[in-house]
């Protein structure tokens, strides 16, 4: 089972982490992506690779007002970049 966590590049003074969740059984990818998002501090970002476009995750992030971009991959699956906003009070707490 593949579950790679690797540093790709720096974003807003924090390293950008990439989490490959594509080989995990459903619904693990969604739960782990959300856990990774919850662990972010203001200004940090995480990139997750998921087996499908994680529409519930995007829905939740939208409700929080967090910026995220999703890209469908040619062979199926999606790459989602999640960023914790600088003014996120909860994250700072």
């Amino acid at each position: 089972m593949q579950n790679n966590l690797s540093t790709v590049c720096g974003v807003a003074d924090a390293p950008l982490l990439e989490l490959d969740l594509r080989d995990l059984p459903s619904p693990e990818p969604m739960m782990r992506a959300l856990a990774a998002a919850d662990a972010l501090r203001p200004g940090q970002a995480v990139q997750v690779l998921t087996p499908l476009l994680p529409t519930p995750l995007l829905d939740l992030l939208q409700a929080r007002g967090w910026p995220a971009t999703a890209t469908l991959l040619a062979g199926g699956g999606a790459r989602v970049l999640i960023r914790c906003p600088l003014g996120d009070d909860e994250a700072a707490a």
């Binding site: 995007l58 971009t69 890209t71 040619a74």
Partner: peptide, 13 residues
């Protein structure tokens, strides 16, 4: 690859 807009994500329920 297709870029998707976050605000187009459907409501889960």
């Amino acid at each position: 690859m297709t870029k998707l807009r976050l605000d187009r994500a459907p409501a889960a329920p």
